[in-house]
Design a protein around this nucleic acid. Structure first.
Length: 569
RNA sequence: GGCGAGGUAGCUCAGUCGGUUAGAGCACUGGCUUCAUAAGCCAGGUGUCGCGGGUUCGAGUCCCGCCCUCGCUACCA
């Protein structure tokens, strides 16, 4: 029995999330958590929005609303998408509203300072006098001092690709209001990453079996590490603790510094809500906890290096990540998802037409585990029609309608002798049986979806071999036993479907006459002859209806055309 | 520039420590079946494993070089 704390990257409360986000950090995590629970293991699933930072202040001001209102709007919008996808966190909060967050983030700063892991340093940064704020590099435009291109962004020139120093741009201007920024000296605190690496984090990282994409990337960074600023001149964020500010004012913790602390704040919020305020320590301060961060690859530095450094630097026994199953990127029909270029799938319309559970399955089956991958409408259609409707859905209807017609809608009887014989046929002679759970626990979600479908295919082979429609006349007892076995197999499928499609799994379970939540049946694993049947003969079936609607060529073609039309508009 | 990942059948991909005639799904063709959502089952593969070298009894797999695609490059989060 293990205990696992699962986090999904905190989405930034500055816009809607799309399927690329969902498949990168949220769906796999939800699937993983559901699998652990089916296996009887303890898991806690934590998420919420990341609500500080410069980009949010700009977004809110452009919309003419106060910061808290702005982030509350996106917090709700993002949550709605998760709800529709059936992603169920144990706690959902936000870094600007979670009760312990400010104090905890300040505490992190304080303890790092006491540990000697912070460096105070002055630097020159660009300040916009009109907007009265310091500008992040990417919010400054100007002429590239390398190639002369105009409208280069302060962090990188779009023309020549050079990584720029914003303060050296020729004719710089504020991206927001166009005025000329001035250089101002400002003091900030830096996290001494080289020191933390040498003290512990380097060794810790090396001694751990990471996913290939994580390992290569971080090893590289470890070799060439520099102190990183963790404060910012801004009014929106967690203030630097006054007692440590040395008279400096207007400083807040950098958003990336406070954001991952949100995982802990939210866990505390969850524990408070349960009426056991100390319970969060069971997850964060017990060595035996497995901390798993689901993220997109853009988040690897933070979750494999910086946040672990912050945690360890507390010297308070915080657990460090056990695994960071970072996904690569997910594109849409050959291009990057882009809200500004209208290369997106409008989700409100999408969920009115398409099934969220089938969408979960398709997303997991195409997840960018080892390389970038993409949503393709044609593949979505193929997946829904072939794998879900034909292989799983049709297996259910072909068996259940037969039973409805010839056995009064009740699960037919089976004798011990026939059970033994049919177990052998089904479990040994109808194709290879595989258990999706080990794949899920290794973060191989694509393979896991294939294994589920392979299981349903075994059911189809079994029915064809035994042909109960023919046996009905020649050997009615065997015909009944075959149908009993097929229904038991559907029950296996329903249970195995839970991590991928929890609601559909429940629908199927009830169609089979199953009572109560299918999750409570536990994970079915690979059936063992003689002990895998869970439904009683004589049990009345539920209402039979095809679990998955097939998608027509016309509607898929229309979706692709609409996508392209929106992008051109 | 630096780093990384990919390049395997028409399409999407799997190939663990190097080891038989390189696999799966889809698509396609033929046959069977008629319980079922025009679903199901069976059978059918002459692939330069990106290119060129090398190591080895043996390379898709390891080493070197090159070509192509994509991503990341931390003061956006």
């Amino acid at each position: 029995m293990t205990r696992t704390l699962v986090t999904s990257a905190l989405p930034y409360a500055n816009g809607p999330i799309h399927f690329g986000h969902a498949v990168g950090a949220y769906l796999p995590a939800d699937c993983y958590v559901r699998t652990l629970r089916m296996l009887g293991e303890e898991a806690l699933f934590v998420c919420g929005t990341d609500e500080h930072g410069f980009a949010i202040t700009v977004g809110a001001e452009n919309d003419g609303v106060e910061y808290p209102e702005y982030v509350a709007r996106w917090r709700a919008d993002i949550k709605r998408t998760f709800d529709r996808l059936g992603i169920e966190f144990d706690v959902w909060s936000g870094t600007s509203i979670s009760p312990h967050h400010t104090e905890l983030a300040q505490d992190f700063f304080r303890r790092l300072s006491e540990g000697g892991f912070l460096i105070k340093r002055a630097s020159e940064q660009l300040y916009c006098p009109k907007d009265e704020r310091f500008l992040a590099d990417r919010y400054v435009l100007g002429t590239c001092y390398v190639c002369g291109a105009e409208d280069a962004r302060g962090d990188e020139c779009g023309k020549c690709g050079t990584w720029l120093d914003a303060t050296r741009l020729v004719e710089p201007r504020c991206r927001n209001c166009g005025s000329v920024p001035e250089k101002r000296s400002t003091t900030h605190w830096y996290l001494d990453l080289p020191k933390l690496r040498d003290a512990h984090i380097g060794e810790w990282f090396q001694g751990h079996p990471w996913k290939a994409n994580v390992k290569a990337f971080v090893e590289n960074m470890l070799a060439d590490l520099e102190p990183r600023p963790i404060t910012r001149d801004m009014g929106w964020g967690v203030p630097v603790p006054e007692d440590l500010a040395d008279g400096e004012t207007g400083k807040v913790l950098y958003v990336w510094f406070d954001a991952p602390i949100g995982y802990i704040s939210f866990t505390r919020e969850w524990a408070d809500a349960k009426g056991e305020p100390e319970l969060w320590k069971r997850y964060w301060k017990d060595d035996s906890t497995r901390l798993v961060h689901f993220i997109g690859k853009d988040n690897i530095p933070f979750h494999c290096l910086i946040f672990p450094s912050m945690l360890w630097g507390q010297q308070e026994g915080y657990v460090l990540p056990w695994q960071v199953p970072a996904m690569e990127f997910y594109n849409l029909q050959g291009r990057k998802f882009s809200t500004s270029r209208n290369w997106t799938i409008p989700l409100d319309a999408f969920f009115e037409t398409y099934d969220a559970e089938a969408t979960r399955f398709y997303l997991l089956s195409s997840a960018p585990e080892a390389a970038d991958s993409e949503w393709r409408w044609e593949e979505f259609q193929r997946c829904v029609n072939t794998s879900l409707a034909d292989t799983i859905g049709n297996l259910a209807t072909r068996v259940l309608r037969f039973v409805a017609k010839h056995h009064e809608g009740r699960i037919p009887a089976i004798s011990p002798g026939l059970a033994e014989e049919l177990d052998r046929v089904l479990l040994e002679e109808c194709g290879e049986l595989s258990d999706p759970a080990p794949s899920i626990l290794e973060f191989r979600f694509r393979r896991a979806t294939q294994e589920l479908i392979a299981g349903a295919a075994v059911g189809n082979v079994f029915i064809d071999r035994e042909a109960p429609w023919a046996l009905r006349k020649s050997d009615p007892e065997r015909s009944a036993a075959v149908l009993n076995t097929a229904i038991q197999w559907l029950a296996w499928i329903a249970r195995a479907m839970v991590p991928f499609m929890p609601a559909k799994a429940q629908d199927l379970w009830e169609m089979l006459g199953g009572v109560g939540p299918v999750e409570t049946q536990g994970w079915p694993g690979i059936p063992i002859a003689g002990s895998w049947r869970v439904l009683e003969a004589g049990t009345p079936l539920g209402q039979i209806s095809p679990p998955f609607r097939k998608l027509t060529d016309e509607e898929i073609e229309a979706e692709v055309a609409a996508l392209e039309a929106r992008a051109e508009a």
